[in-house]
């Protein structure tokens, strides 16, 4: 075969995908729901307390925490990728809303400081 390097360019992304998948896979039970907008933390809520939070005002995402899992149930972003992501519950799982620069991430108990845990800070 003339182009034997083709295999490399096909195997390398697959290998990288496998490696990244192992590195980033959800690990263990989640404890908190960490909400960041523009990279800054705007809220942190216990995963095991049911609540509904509206993040943002003009650009809003509605975050529902229920029965130990979190989901964005409504938003006025254009693509609704965040809503279609569905429920997340394990540490490392993430919901992203690119138009609103929002990241909702489940974290375990070990991350972050304990006194930041009381949450709040959302209008």
């Amino acid at each position: 075969m003339k182009h034997r390097c083709d295999l490399l360019v096909i195997l390398l992304p697959l290998l990288a995908a496998g490696l990244l998948f192992l590195l980033l896979r959800p690990s263990g039970a989640g404890q908190y729901v960490l909400v960041t907008v523009d990279g800054a933390e705007v809220g942190r809520y216990p995963l095991h307390e049911d609540r509904t939070v509206t993040i943002g005002e003009a650009d809003y995402n509605i975050l529902e925490i229920r029965d130990g899992s979190a989901a964005v149930t409504d938003a006025n972003c254009g693509d609704h990728t965040c809503v279609r992501t569905g429920q997340i519950r394990r540490a490392g799982e993430t919901i992203i809303c690119l138009p609103h620069r929002l990241v909702v991430k489940i974290i375990g108990g070990g991350e972050g400081t304990v006194d930041a845990v009381s949450g709040g800070g959302i209008a």
């Binding site: 992304p13 697959l14 995908a17 980033l24 960041t36 490392g92 992203i96």
Partner: peptide, 23 residues
Amino acid sequence: VAMAVLRSAAVAYYYPALLLSGT
């Protein structure tokens, strides 16, 4: 670009799936 916009590496979470679909 998504990382720069979000100021977070969180979108790397999507990349394994994108690598597969992209290939």
